[in-house]
Amino acid sequence: MLKVEALQQSVDLISTPVAAEVSTHATTKPAGSMAAQFETLLLSTEDNITTICLNRPQKKNAISVMMYSEIIEALRLAGKDESIITVITGSGDYYCSGNDLTNFVTTKVTRSRVEQTDEEFLSMFRDFVRAFIDFPKPLIAVVNGPAVGVAVTLLGLFDTVYATDRATFHTPFTKLGMFPEGCSSYTFPRMMGAAKASEMLLFGRKLSAAEAREQGLVTDVFPDSTFQAEVWRRLKAYAQLPRNSLVLSKQLMRSHYREKLHAVNDRECEVVAGLQQSEECMNAVVSFLQSKSKL
């Protein structure tokens, strides 16, 4: 049986504060007017575009519990404002390194709270994915660097995905004793076929930006040196299109499989709930954190 002490040591090691790295690939997006204040996000609106920027660059934009909650709220606000399109991107060198595993294993340390904490987290995660499924406007991912885990699997719920040529896409769920999330068990086979989806989701094959485009995960890829300029030029042109037409067109396209996505999300959360209670998952996560702490 996995020792609680070993689990706590892993959390302590990997949670040691680190200085924020100086990025050579800082996100250059319109500053805009701030729609709301968040601790882990930058939310702004300019030129009919609402931008949600993941803002934990010192942690490679890993999604903490707070960030999950704030993304839900940011999507709610963006869905109701007067902008035409909504963009999600990351600050610093990474788009997003996926779920912050230190938050996950911390819930395991206090055994008396684990069931309640896991139930609350999974309920929030279910709502998190629902916010993407039900988002009413065109939602575009601007992948400014490597993407890992749920940051990748969620891309199947975006309407368009643009990536820099230095981006990579990695879904190491089974290595961590976990299960793919974000409706990817449905969207990935639908986009790239069962064999390619299995190679990525089951066996953790990392894709380059060019490979992701070939397999339908990414819409277009741009050279890193011109990525921001080219993408934002295109986005500003999209933001001049008629708002109601875009919204109604998206709703019609999504209506054919919206119920299916909700059912998939519910089922994935059920499977994740079972796996997170397993010793296999806990051992895999701790092993990963311990190896990471030695780097």
Rank of each mutant, 00 (worst) to 15 (best):
L2C: 02
E5T: 08
Q8L: 14
Q8E: 15
E21M: 11
E21F: 09
T24H: 13
S33C: 10
L41P: 03
D47V: 00
T51K: 03
R56F: 00
S69V: 00
E70P: 07
L75W: 03
V87A: 04
I88P: 02
T89F: 00
S97P: 03
N99P: 01
V105G: 04
K108E: 13
K108Y: 14
T110A: 09
R113H: 12
V114W: 07
E119K: 14
F121Y: 11
L122S: 03
S123M: 08
F125L: 12
F135P: 10
K137C: 05
P146V: 07
V148K: 12
G149E: 10
T153G: 09
L154M: 14
T160P: 02
Y162G: 06
T164E: 12
D165K: 07
G177H: 00
G177F: 05
M178L: 07
G182V: 08
G193L: 06
K196M: 10
K196Y: 04
S198G: 05
E199Y: 01
L202R: 06
F203Y: 15
G204W: 04
A209G: 09
A212Y: 07
V221D: 07
W232E: 06
K236M: 11
Y238D: 15
Q240T: 15
L241I: 00
P242L: 02
L246H: 00
L252T: 09
R254Y: 03
R258M: 00
E259T: 09
E259P: 02
A263P: 03
A263R: 05
D266R: 09
R267W: 07
Q276V: 15
Q277S: 11
Q290F: 06
S291I: 11
K294N: 10
